[in-house]
Amino acid sequence: MPEQLLQFLATGVTVGSIYALVGLGFALIYNASDVVNFAQGEFVMLGAMTTVALLNAGLPLALAGVVATLLTALVGLLLERFAIEPAAGASVVSTIIITIGAAIFLRGVVLLLWGKGFHALPPFTGDAPIQFWGATLLPQSLWVLGITALLVVLVRAFFNHTLLGKALLACSFNRNAAQLVGINVRVMLRLAYALSAALGALAGILVAPITFTSYEAGVMLGLKGFSAAIVGGIGNPMGAVAGGLLLGVLESLGAGLISSGYKDAIAFLFVLMVLFFEPTGLFGHKTAERV
């Protein structure tokens, strides 16, 4: 039983860190613009699918990954420039619908470019399972865990210690005030989308060897990433990571200890409970409402 429990936890943490990576992208854009970008899952899919295509075209994996990340960042930037920016001043819900439209659009583009098939990326360093105290992990899971941890540290450092990061945060707190102190809000927003898209693409490339990818892969990952970001407290990158891990572990424990069929229901029931007691998520800002 203890080994079993350990395996459930190992599984949960692996799956959870995937959710966390996607959630991080949600948090980034929300931080800069107060918009929840429902195309975030599609960035993840785009990163993985582009890498697959480049790999098939003969590029080595590392180079394909870098190019795919840059291309996805470009897509993020274009999305901000041509879909979000012209709608400045629209209500939050209208903006959400625009991002949903963008998600459907991106899925449609990938469908036309690369078809409906499932694709796998080769694992970065083989797939000989790693044993520890009776539980096993794939080397790729360690990559996911390691890079998630690294990105978390980087994102945190970016917002807390760099001028650019602080400027981004300022845009979220008060756009007009940010403009007044000389921050180019427009450039900041584009930057936020590009960064978040790159983050998503990176996540997609990391997890594709484990989860495979297809033009529809972003839907589920986007949903779980969104949940992670909200449970953790939207706008808090650390919260998104905690939320992702929590969700992953809950699903895994739910499947292992209670019922595998109902595991999603169990996980979301827990999420509801969290929100009922902490209405702004686990680590959300407790802001006062302006009247």
């Binding site: 001043g89 619908i97 625009i98 949903i100 459907i104 659009f105 899925r107």
Partner: peptide, 16 residues
């Protein structure tokens, strides 16, 4: 899908 997504975006951008 492509057309659906594009239409949705266009409507919301120009008629928020």
């Amino acid at each position: 899908m492509l057309i659906h997504g594009a239409l949705l975006m266009t409507v919301m951008i120009f008629l928020p």
